[in-house]
Every structure is written in C-alpha cells, then in structure tokens.
C-alpha cells in the first residue's frame, strides 16, 4: 500500500516536472534564445554595428539615467513609506498602504496618459510650469522630454521597494526600537543600528526588482517620449527599429533587445545570489 502510494506520487511528480519544463521552454527559454540567435543572424560585425548607432547609444543612456534616478527616488520614498506604515499608527494608514500599490494594478499606458494630461499643454499643471520657467528664466519641459521619461519610470516602479520592506518591518515589531529609544538613541541612530540591518536584504531585493522593471518599462514611457535619439529608451528604440520593417532594422532590433535580455538575466542571477545569501545570513539571527 505504502509503496504504491509512493510510486503514485512519484508519477505525479514527474508529470508536473515535464509540464513545467515544457511550458517554461516554450514560453520563456525559446523566445529568449531566439532573440539572441536572431540578433546574431547577420554576423557579429553587424551586431556590434547596430549597437553602436547614435540612436541606440542615446537610448541606452536615457534608459540607464531613468532607471538610476527611479531606483534612487523609490528607494528613499520606499523606505520612508514603509517606515511610516509599519512603525506609526495614524488615521488613513490603510488607505495610504493601498495607494502605494496603485502602480501595480494600473496599466502603464494609463499612467503615461495621466502624466500627459497633467503636465502636457492641456494639463492643469502646465501653466504653473510656465510660470516657474518665466520666473527663473529657465525652460523646463516635462512632457516629451527627459523629466517625463523619468517621472513615468518612477511611477511604474514605485511600489517595489516599499512592498519588499513592509512585511519584514511588520514581522520585526517595534520592541527593539522602543528599547533603543528608552536608552536615549535618536531616530536616525535607531534606523541605522536597529532597523536597517533588519531590512538590508529585503531592501536590496526590492532595488533589484525596481531596476529590472525600470529598464524594461515601455507603456508609460511611450506616452511621454516621442523624440528618437533624444528621449527614447531602449524598449522604445527596439520598437522603432522593428516597425521600420527592413530586414536589417529587424535584426538590429533583436541586437538591441539582446542588451535588455542580458541585463534581465544578470538581474535574475543577482537576485538569486542575494536570496541565497540572505537566507544563509538570516539563519544566524532568527530563531
């Protein structure tokens, strides 16, 4: 009886493994491999050449810039929001916690359009921006300019850091902070010595997810960025190359895509190393 049951569950195990592997191969691995294969279909010199165009380099710079700023901003606000939500009690806390998740549930295109309607020529904030420009003698543009791209990226990646930290802070409670405060430690000292060591790994993990998402953002940025070679990000550049339709440009599109694929794989590997490290370290402190 017992061995029967065991061989039965063994059978199920292998069926599940085959289904998963097959599914992953068809849905994930093959497409990604085909990107790399296609990108190299006209040879390595062509591959390198298509990465060296003015448009591609500009797009790479814009993408990295937007990602770096988005990660910095969201790390800061993510920590602040998570700290606020877990360590203080106030009215409207639940609402605030729910608001943070909006970028997860809303389509990025809508986010892009929302920024367009806010800061664009018809938007309510446009006149204020014009006033500021006149007052300080500057020429700040949000929509169809770099600030718009950065804003859209920040919006879309906003929840990642705080969502990673909040559960960890919740689980930790406020006892240790209270004990430290009783001994006369200041708020920042408590954060540095007590809270930060606790959220370190979750924070890094959140930053990595945030980076991955920022690099690949298309929808929101698409609504706010129209100048190829100036404000295009890598995903937009790939789209433009692909839509151009010539076989050269399609191969170039794959070549540029391969950069994003490599970045994504790097991020995933980094993530797994971190998870492994965090698990190992955590074991030392948790009982």
């Amino acid at each position: 009886m017992k061995s029967n049951r065991k061989s039965g569950s063994q059978g199920i195990k292998w069926v599940l493994i085959s289904v998963s592997v097959l599914f992953m191969a068809i849905m994930l691995v093959l497409p990604l491999v085909s990107v790399i294969v296609n990108s190299l279909s006209l040879g390595i010199p062509f591959y390198l050449k298509s990465l060296h165009t003015e448009y591609t380099l500009s797009a790479l710079m814009v993408t990295l810039l937007a990602a770096v700023i988005a990660v910095l901003v969201n790390t800061f606000f993510g920590i602040v929001a998570a700290w606020l939500i877990t360590k203080f009690s106030f009215k409207g806390k639940q609402t605030l916690a729910a608001l943070i998740d909006i970028p997860f549930s809303i389509s990025p295109v809508i986010a892009g359009l929302a920024f367009l309607m806010t800061f664009g020529r018809l938007g309510w904030a446009n006149s204020y921006i014009n006033q500021i420009n006149q007052l300080f003698g500057v020429d700040i543009k949000i929509v169809f300019a770099l600030p718009g791209v950065v804003l859209a990226t920040i919006f879309v990646t906003f929840p990642f850091v705080s969502r990673e930290i909040i559960p960890v802070l919740h689980a930790q409670g406020t006892d240790e902070e209270e004990a430290a405060a009783l001994m006369g430690a200041s708020g920042f000292y408590i954060f540095r010595k007590i809270t930060f060591p606790h959220i370190k790994w979750a924070l890094l993990y959140g930053v990595i997810l945030c980076t991955a998402r920022a690099l690949g953002e298309f929808g929101a940025v698409n609504a706010l960025s129209k100048a190829r070679g100036k404000t295009f990000t890598l995903p937009l550049e790939i789209d433009a190359l692909y839509l151009a339709g010539s076989s050269d440009s399609i191969t170039a599109a794959f070549a540029v895509s391969s950069i994003l694929v490599i970045m994504a794989v790097t991020v995933i590997v980094a993530r797994n190393i971190l998870e492994y490290q965090a698990g190992k370290k955590q074991g030392r402190y948790e009982s």
Partner: peptide
C-alpha cells in the same frame, strides 16, 4: 531616556 531607568521587555527585545 533621562529618567534613569532600565527596562526589561516582556520578550526581552534584544537587538538580534
């Protein structure tokens, strides 16, 4: 912090 007290918490609240 300035009352000159020591406090032992229920679950000790040791800095882990």
């Amino acid at each position: 912090a300035e009352r000159g007290i020591g406090f032992v918490f229920q679950n000790y609240a040791l800095f882990r």
